[in-house]
C-alpha cells in the first residue's frame, strides 16, 4: 500500500512538471496569451487555496476521531431504508480514496452484509464525501450540488438493489 502511495505522488510530480513545460513552451510562443492564462490560473488558485486548508482540517479530524472499525461495526445488519441511509452516511464520512473502501466492502460482504448496502456504501464513498461536497459548493454552487447529490442518492439506491437482485438470481441458477 505504501509503495502505491509513493507511486501516486511521483505521478503527481511528473504531471506537474509536464504541465509546467507545456505552459512555458505555449506561453513563450504566444506571449499575447500570457496575461489571460496567468490571471485565470491565479484566480482559480486563490479560490482553491482559500478552502483547501479547511477541507484538509476536516479530513484530519474525521481520520482521528472516527474509529476505523465503525463502518464494519454498524453497517450491513439493517435492511431497507435504514440500511441504505446508514450506508450513505458511512460512505460520506471523509475517509480517503476509493481503493481504501474495497477491503472494507469485502469485509462487509464476508460478514454477510446485504449487497445493496455495500454497493450504496461504495458509491457514497466515491462521490458524496463531506469535505469534497464543500468544494463542489464553492465551485459549482448550491443548486448544482443539491441536484447532483439527491439524484445520486436515488440512482445509487436503485443500482444497489438491482445488483443485489442480479447476483441473487445468478447464485440460484448455479445451485
Amino acid at each position: 500500500m505504501k509503495e502505491q502511495l509513493r507511486n501516486v505522488e511521483m505521478q503527481d510530480l511528473v504531471f506537474l512538471g509536464f504541465i509546467l513545460i507545456v505552459a512555458t513552451v505555449l506561453l513563450s510562443i504566444f506571449p499575447d496569451r500570457r496575461e489571460v492564462v496567468i490571471t485565470t490560473s491565479w484566480e482559480f488558485f486563490v479560490e482553491m487555496i482559500s478552502i483547501l486548508p479547511a477541507v484538509m482540517v476536516l479530513i484530519g479530524i474525521f481520520a482521528v476521531f472516527v474509529p476505523k472499525d465503525l463502518v464494519v461495526r454498524y453497517l450491513g445488519r439493517d435492511a431497507g431504508i435504514k440500511g441504505i441511509f446508514l450506508a450513505i452516511i458511512m460512505g460520506a464520512l471523509p475517509t480517503g480514496p476509493l481503493y481504501i473502501a474495497f477491503p472494507i466492502a469485502s469485509a462487509l460482504l464476508k460478514k454477510g452484509a446485504r449487497i445493496s448496502n455495500v454497493i450504496v456504501f461504495l458509491s457514497a464513498w466515491s462521490c458524496i464525501k463531506l469535505p469534497q461536497e464543500l468544494v463542489e459548493l464553492e465551485f459549482l454552487g448550491l443548486k448544482f450540488m443539491l441536484a447532483r447529490l439527491s439524484l445520486t442518492v436515488v440512482f445509487v439506491t436503485i443500482m444497489g438493489l438491482a445488483i443485489e437482485r442480479m447476483v441473487a438470481k445468478w447464485n440460484d441458477c448455479e445451485c
Binding site: R33, S41, I49, M56, V64
Partner: peptide, 28 residues
Amino acid sequence: ALVIALKSFIRVLPTVVAIVIFIGLLLG
C-alpha cells in the same frame, strides 16, 4: 488531526497547482 491535515495538504498541492495551470491554458 492537524498533522494529518498538513500531510494531505502537501500531498494534494502538486496536483492542485498542475490543474490550476491546466485550467488557465484551457481557458486561454
